[in-house]
Design a protein around this nucleic acid. Structure first.
Lengths: 338, 338
DNA sequence: GGCAGAAATGAGCGCGCTCTCACGGAGAGT
DNA sequence: ACTCTCCGTGAGAGCGCGCTCATTTCTGCC
């Protein structure tokens, strides 16, 4: 074994020589072509094993014009999403699903200072498809992207014009209606909401669901404050809500993190959960169930969302026709906070 | 404009023709070679802009034998780390740093059922370097990896034999000593700890720091229970601690998530924080500051950790000699819980 | 046994780029 | 004026693989 032995990776050519066949045949075996004699297949496979051959990705990409890799695009301004457990679970779902395929996952943080760099990267044949999560109103550009390369969005596009986009989403509207109705059934009347940013579909839809449920019951929908999905913003929103000095006997927060931020403020004010104020969150974070009292929330499998997005994209890349919309259902988890 | 116009990406050749130079010259301009006449440089750049040319990654990889991409390897069993905000911030730091370079970030979930697949992928010339986070005792394999491709670990390797690995870590031992001493200075005597898994460096070291500080002060170190860094495990550990029926006036948790899990149990038992039990966490999560009372914790910039890991790896790939160990400092953040 | 037709295999080109090397021309030294 | 350098540029050979197409080897049938 020379020192540089490991540096020189075995090539198709070497495998072919070893197995006593041509490069083309080895290529067929590697790619599972059906028309190769069984004995040759095993001869080739032996040679592959002996040489510990692994196809060179770059060469394969170049020759086949397919990259076997997909990008997860994250607009820089929302790179904060990284700290959102919901988002983290999406990545996980995507990664886990792709692990079962031959696709590779690339994370692309889209620099907004230099948007063209990202655009070119994506359209320049570097990837077979893209996943875009948490797209804001400014993200028309990525919607357009869908014309040159398959794209699957996580979350409903905010604008009607993007209607032909392929996306996977959780049913935010009916989920938040369910959450709000649950509060109503519990006898609460003055139900506030800590909403997410109105320019994000998840924020907008969860607010809308709350409004619908409240309207339906004939309740007032003025008790609303907005946060940015972070715990701190939830605390601040709760503070503003309490400062209004109007009765509040329940709060529906657009995500668990904001709900937990609100928890702290409620406690500081000497109020108790759920006696004085019932709280319902959204997402079913790990922390919600460990909080005291445990947080009632809407469960949605972010893992599943990620996995479905990934599989939808892969299908779409491979030419299968896919549903333009996939809506995943959510489930109410009742715990101590309501 | 024919329909397939956009499908045919411009090549080096086309740019060369347009600029009236040879392929080699365009290549030099693209790669910033210093020995090209200024007027040719601008001519080429114009042609590039007009054609909206972007180099084909695969071809470049093939020819140069460099992939310009690095992998973030996550052992499947620890893929739960995705839900840990600390880890999420590391990814973010890595991604943000790489965005300033030409490197691409690939996420690889290492299937433990089929470890060779991952190994081959990593050593098969598909990446220029790898980042390994949260490596367990079982991860010798990745340490070995360092011989064929540059690897930077996040977190100290648990085994001495891996001493030649390059890693970046936060100073867990002195951080947890600081946290524990802070509790001691506050007059606490019966200081328990909710430790992390002993087979993870972060778990082991934080436990060690607590022991050292306690020994130093001559206090008893029997008040220890282990969790797995999740909120629920923190709650369970706290429950076991209280069930011992021995006095406890403070708890040092190995991360904020477990500390918040403990919060709930402490409250359930009618105890108050910090009056009855002071609590100190670790990581400085977003949720810690929004909790009530706000959580005292050790701040460490996970973003920075990620960025430093990435830059260390890139340097190492580019042949610069790098520190084998980089230890980032932590800082005590005193808030209401202690 | 001979031949058509199918099946299996091999030869070779091209994917887009990097890089070495040869070449031409400008400046310096004698 | 002539050779020697050195700098800037171009020509061309691969990088490892997929794929087309020609070639060879079977198979079945008359």
């Amino acid at each position: 074994m020379s020192v540089k032995a490991q540096a020189q990776a075995p090539t198709l050519e070497m495998v072919a020589a070893r197995a006593g066949v041509s490069r083309a045949t080895v290529s067929r075996v590697v790619n599972g072509s059906p028309k190769v004699k069984p004995e040759l297949i095993s001869a080739v496979n032996e040679a592959i094993a002996e040489l510990n051959y692994v196809p060179n990705r770059a060469a394969r990409m170049l020759a086949s014009r397919r990259t076997e890799s997909i990008a997860l695009v994250i607009p820089e301004s929302t790179s904060r999403v990284f700290t959102d457990p919901f988002f983290a679970s999406i990545i996980q779902g995507v990664a886990m699903h792709l692990a079962t395929t031959d696709y590779t996952l690339g994370i692309v943080v889209a620099s907004e200072a230099n948007p063209d760099k990202t655009r070119r990267y994506l359209t320049g044949g570097n990837i077979d498809g893209a996943l875009v999560v948490s797209h804001h109103s400014g993200d028309h550009s990525y919607a357009r992207l869908g014309r040159s390369v398959p794209v699957v969005f996580g979350g409903r596009p905010l604008h009607a014009e993007d209607n032909d986009s392929v996306f996977v989403d959780v049913d935010n509207i009916s989920g938040s209606m369910t959450a709000t109705r649950h509060l109503i059934e519990r006898g609460r009347r003055n139900i506030a909401t800590i909403a997410g940013p109105a320019d994000m579909p998840a924020g907008f839809d969860r607010e809308l669901g709350w409004r619908r449920a409240m309207d339906e019951a004939g309740f007032d929908t003025s008790l609303i404050e907005w946060g940015d999905f972070s715990p701190a913003s939830g605390a601040m929103a709760m503070r503003r809500l309490l400062a209004r000095n109007t009765p509040i006997d329940a709060v529906f927060a657009a995500n668990d993190q904001m709900a937990l931020g609100a928890y702290a403020v409620i406690a500081e004010n000497g109020l108790s959960i759920p006696h004085d104020i019932a709280v319902v969150g959204y997402d079913d974070d790990a922390l919600g169930s460990a909080a005291s009292p445990a947080l009632t929330t809407m469960h949605q499998s972010a893992n599943e969302l990620g996995a479905v997005m990934a599989s939808t994209l892969v299908k779409s890349i491979e030419g299968e026709t896919v549903e333009h919309q996939t809506i995943l259902q959510t489930r109410l988890i009742v715990r101590g906070s309501s």
